[in-house]
Write a protein that binds this DNA or RNA. Structure first.
Lengths: 200, 200
DNA sequence: CGCATAATTGAACAATGTTCAATATGTGCT
DNA sequence: AGCACATATTGAACATTGTTCAATTATGCG
């Protein structure tokens, strides 16, 4: 038995999240179980429930970390100065590449379905908004006469669209294969959308 | 006990699919269990396994029926003569309305994750291609100089995009609410995309 | 009427999330 | 040093899941 005070609550918390990430990466959401996570960090199920409210809680926190990683990669790309169109294409490529390299964890964000009454935790919502903000910033120079509301709307539309392509392709519900064709599809959506969106 | 020959295999098969649809509509995929379906049609678990290979098989068949319904509604809309842009907007509205009115069953198509090695049954693939065909047909008049490949690519890109909007909105991963805003978002995507896609 | 055939059952198994009394362990006090 | 208290950790228990298959029961035929 793990001896008392071998690890603080915080340490156990972190260890569990990392273990869960490893399991989810290899076996997907359906392969993730409380007992597996517990045994991987050298504790038993009970301990997990001292640190997380339940499995949903743990999954939500793993997803939050994944989203955070994705955001950081996008921010890094977005920081390099580029023409607006190139910036959006680069963001889209980064998104797709992340989803492609971390398919299991990325899918988990969307596979995990919330209870009917459940409201997303604030940090999670903020992550999403931060991501949209990157797209909005890149979009703004292309629509100088457009209102903030229109820019926000466009960013959401375009990004949800890219997300949809990514999702259908990587979950193999679409009859396409390979990361290149995903990129191509996303480029098609982006280029045509920007052509229509751009003013002049 | 249900008496022998009360129902043929085919009847049991159909009853099970309908029962599963009802359960899924009310409780979602996670509320669907073999025992629930069985008891709802007055049989026991064992019987279900004479008619379906396993639960995944049953779910896949339910999804196939859902997709078929969706396709029929879209085809009905697509049959009425309209200008290309109006046609695509109408198709998108139909899609969103169906997803909105049958959220649980529609989500189930995408929530149900396939094994790594699993290949989608041919009928399922055909359904998807049929749906894309409707979009392609509406798109063709707008891109008279474009190749079939380009049209197909555009249809997939746009439609996956609309799907993405629908999915993020209805699963509440986006910070928007209500069917109207979903329609608005989808319209934004469509209108800008078509503006960019259209030739002249 | 009885027997063979086949339809239907439901007990059994392994695995799941979750709880909580019981136990092991470290800390502090005398 | 030893003892007692507090608490970290456990793991057995429960309900539920998918899936299998020997046992049972109803039916139609001879």
């Amino acid at each position: 038995m793990a001896r008392r005070s071998d690890h603080t609550r915080e340490e156990i918390h972190l260890m569990a999240l990392e273990a869960a990430e490893a399991i989810a990466s290899q076996e997907g959401l359906s392969g993730l179980s409380a007992r597996k996570v517990a045994s991987k960090i050298g504790y038993t199920v009970g301990t997990l429930y001292l640190v997380f409210r339940n499995l949903d809680d743990l999954i939500l926190q793993v997803n939050d970390r994944t989203l955070s990683q994705l955001y950081q990669e996008m921010e890094r790309v977005s920081a390099k100065p580029k023409k607006p169109e190139a910036c959006i294409l680069a963001l889209s490529h980064t998104y797709i590449e992340f989803a492609s390299n971390n398919t299991a964890r990325w899918s988990m964000i969307y596979e995990h379905v919330l209870e009917d009454d459940f409201v997303l935790p604030a940090p999670f919502q903020q992550q999403v908004q931060q991501m949209f903000a990157l797209v909005e910033n890149a979009l703004r120079p292309l629509g100088k006469n457009k209102s903030d509301r229109e820019i926000a709307q466009a960013a959401r539309a375009l990004w949800s669209g890219i997300h949809g392509i990514c999702l259908l392709a990587l979950t193999r519900k679409l009859d396409i294969a390979g990361i290149d064709s995903v990129q191509d599809l996303a480029d098609t959506l982006t280029v045509n959308f920007l052509n229509g969106f751009r003013e002049n």
